[in-house]
């Protein structure tokens, strides 16, 4: 069903249409909430809060973005507000995030200088690569994790990600570039260490 029809039905109080909206977008919301909120109970409350806000504000939805992007934007902002209210930062990533903000592309180039040119991801078994990737993703600052998930897993465009996070397009591209490079280097470094 098209966004417009779904929105009109929800505006007319059709709860079944709202259930359809939740089912269509809850995976996207989960990706954001899980990356930003560490506590399981908080995640439960926030996920519900996201949709209650969406229901309340759907009369104001102007179709300037996709409905799913709008929901993801609510999810992202709800998580940020929760973290600010509780004076928290993204889970376990405070110092890394600060580091990431300051790091430059040159820093990353230095980090990977130790890598042998012959090291490639192709040489690592798929299952091992998957494990290493999981570790590497968890090491990324939370904002990078969200960008990587939204771009590579949810396959959203740079513009959609910028709408959701409120970051400028250029910043989204820059962060994604750093995150990808960091992931590749981290996997190869880790593999090399294990190999020694």
């Amino acid at each position: 069903m098209e966004d417009k029809e779904l929105v009109n039905r929800i505006r007319n109080g059709d709860h079944h249409a709202f259930t359809v909206l939740i089912r269509n977008t809850e995976r996207l919301v989960a990706q954001i909430v899980f990356k930003m909120i560490g506590n399981a109970e908080d995640r439960r409350d926030i996920a519900q809060d996201v949709y209650l806000k969406a229901y309340k504000n759907i009369p104001l939805f102007k179709f300037k973005s996709k409905l799913s992007t709008w929901i993801a934007q609510i999810a992202y902002n709800t998580c940020l507000n929760h973290l600010e209210k509780k004076k928290l930062v993204f889970p376990e990533n405070e110092h890394r995030e600060n580091e990431a903000r300051q790091s430059t592309l040159e820093d990353l180039a230095d980090q990977s200088a130790d890598l042998n040119d012959n090291e490639t991801l192709k040489n690592i078994f798929s299952s091992q690569r998957s494990e290493l990737l999981k570790l590497a993703v968890n090491k990324l600052p939370a904002v990078y994790q969200i960008l990587i998930t939204l771009f590579h897993y949810q396959e959203l465009s740079y513009e959609e990600i910028a709408q959701i996070t409120g970051l400028p397009d250029g910043t989204v591209k820059n962060y994604l570039f750093r995150a990808r490079k960091s992931l590749k280097d981290e996997i190869l470094l880790h593999y090399k260490k294990e190999d020694l």
């Binding site: 995976r27 989960a30 990737l133 999981k134 990587i148 897993y153 990808r180 992931l183």
Partner: peptide, 11 residues
């Protein structure tokens, strides 16, 4: 390869 692996990660 990295992008393919990212798509396969459990959600």
């Amino acid at each position: 390869l990295l992008f393919e692996d990212l798509k396969q990660q459990a959600a």
